[in-house]
Design a protein around this nucleic acid. Structure first.
Lengths: 340, 340
DNA sequence: CTGTTAGCGCTTTCAC
DNA sequence: GTGAAAGCGCTAACAG
């Protein structure tokens, strides 16, 4: 049991060199003679010295740690996102501490306070769907700790966003259906309080307009994006006349709807073409007829992280910056693979 | 810009109460008069005081943080595992810092050093498949920081393991095939350097023996668990006479094999029954004929975390402890759902 | 119940 | 190129 208590002072003492010099040497300062450095490094190794990060943190008032808050770690999109975050953070020598809000606003607030307490150098967050107001982020204005909203953007003034181009992507996806001869396209919409679902609806509308197809309000079915919602939606579709395609803003409900339709003997995709935003890999398998719009989750994580660390490390100037990435349109039963 | 610099000394000064008392009050010590506490708490709020965790960490020589190292965060099993870890850690007021080894031993070593440097109070790790020797964990012997191996157990003396009962589970799974009339069962084995795959093979053998079925070496096909391996395996199966079922130690190769077999016009599951360990949800969809053995990933995360924090918080006595959880046998095309 | 005192291990002026 | 000295903000004996 070495107890691993070697400090710079132990090195200092056993070498007769002041601890400040030891500190400098260990940090690679060029204000220390190479010979001395060598000596110090050797002794450090010999004593099994390991820098006490806690002391450094306190002294430097930084943690070299970024915080990440997502609704659920085990949702595929977020797992991918976090994988990207970790990779970039690792490369830039940052640690990442993660937490999940479980889609609860109350918990999000608590986690936010935790992160502040833990003095993370910056924060990446994907807010819950319950998060409509942003008062709880106000505390951040008083910190000099940057914050970036990923996937779920917002417009409070002091933060950055990393998102995909929802509207254009939706337009392209809908256009793809139209190009393939579909005209009566139902849109499975998400909750319209959430910006991104508003944009996806807007993209859908824009595509119709562009192609001279009349917009029909009845063809927009809004839901809370649960698989269970899909059942209801399936029923609604079957009651609508002439529906030949569906464009879904999210795959959860779409999967539910497809299951249900299948049970009712409606053949997919022969009868109805599906196209949807999709993060879970299962949707690629459950129904080959579902073409998908895929968010580049890992890339988003990487981009967000390097943006964040950039902001951390040069804390001057204008912080606000929104990064918009392209989503990928993956078309089934075809070799086409279009980038929006 | 409040700059948020309030310390206990600010509270102390503006109240004429010593900072040690302030500290005690803020920590809810019962050695402070309620009246004083109230005063202090009010003032703290007023000043926007937030405890400086870095100072506490340095002073207490603890971080209330656990480290997690997994091969890949975005592999479904690990995402689930981490979700469980985070939940329990949150409940017990610990932070969790994560890192992924990307299945590289070299990187695992680096991460391990990082974690030590960051003075995590304990560590949860699922080692890479390359991790055959455990020398790099030796540094831990000198710490008083517990370490728990999850899913990938090992036998070094100073650590705990949280695993499933691989052998018994494999026995049950194979038994299920036998019960359904299958006799010529191929085993897709994992790399036999890895303990758990050895155990799964052993379980398979045990089931055969128990049922008086002769073990046939040719029926064991070992692979590195890549989907690409599946192709090769598919070919091998087709060359074997009389194969009527497959029991796979891991779904990656199994999925590859099934795809391949399908392409060759071999109907599944009509012709060959599949059963496999499976962590990815896609396997539930890609082929309904694949019955699966499912590891309780989230539960494993929870159990491992509370075990770890237990060890952290009462650092005396015997640390070593192995927790064995039950896996679930999920049988397709049937309502049966057996717990191993 | 409250105050005094010391110090965790590092970084960082400021001298020389 | 190196040393002296101070201090980050907290907790924890120890006293009283």
């Amino acid at each position: 049991m070495k107890n691993n208590k070697a400090t710079i002072h132990d090195i200092s003492r056993s070498l007769g060199i002041d601890s400040s010099t030891v500190s400098r040497a260990l940090n690679g300062s060029d204000r220390v003679k190479d010979k001395t450095k060598e000596l110090i490094n050797k002794k450090a190794e010999e004593l099994g010295y390991r820098k006490n990060i806690m002391a450094r943190n306190l002294r430097m008032n930084r943690t070299f740690t970024i915080g990440v808050i997502v609704p659920r770690i085990d949702r595929h999109f977020f797992a991918k996102l976090i994988a990207g975050i970790e990779e970039t953070a690792f490369n830039l020598n940052y640690e990442v501490i993660i937490a999940q809000s479980l889609d609860s606003l109350e918990r999000e607030k608590k986690l936010l306070a935790n992160m502040l307490n833990n003095r993370v150098d910056g924060l990446l967050i994907s807010t819950t769907m319950e998060t409509i107001s942003y008062d709880h982020f106000d505390a951040y204005k008083d910190e000099n700790s940057p914050i970036i909203f990923v996937d779920r953007p917002n417009k409070i003034g002091y933060n950055s966003n990393v998102i995909i181009n929802d509207q254009e992507t939706s337009l392209n996806a809908t256009q793809h259906l139209i190009d393939n001869g579909y005209k009566n396209i139902v849109h499975f919409a998400g909750p319209q309080e959430v910006d991104l679902y508003k944009l996806r609806l807007a993209g859908y509308k824009a595509a119709l307009e562009k192609n001279g197809i009349e917009f029909n309000e009845d063809y927009v079915i809004e839901s809370r994006l649960m698989q269970e919602d899909g059942e209801k939606m399936a029923k609604q579709i079957l009651e609508l006349p002439n529906v030949d395609a569906v464009f879904a803003a999210n795959d959860h409900a779409a999967i539910g709807a497809m299951k249900r339709l299948k049970e009712q003997g409606v053949k997919i995709p022969e009868d109805i073409a599906f196209m949807g935003f999709s993060d879970e890999p299962i949707s690629e398998y459950i129904e080959p007829g579902l073409s998908t719009v895929k968010q580049p989750a890992t890339l988003m994580g990487k981009e967000a992280t390097s943006l964040l660390i950039g902001q951390i490390e040069n804390k001057s100037g204008d912080i606000v910056h929104t990064k918009i990435l392209d989503a990928e349109l993956i078309v089934r039963n075809s070799t086409k693979k279009i980038t929006a």
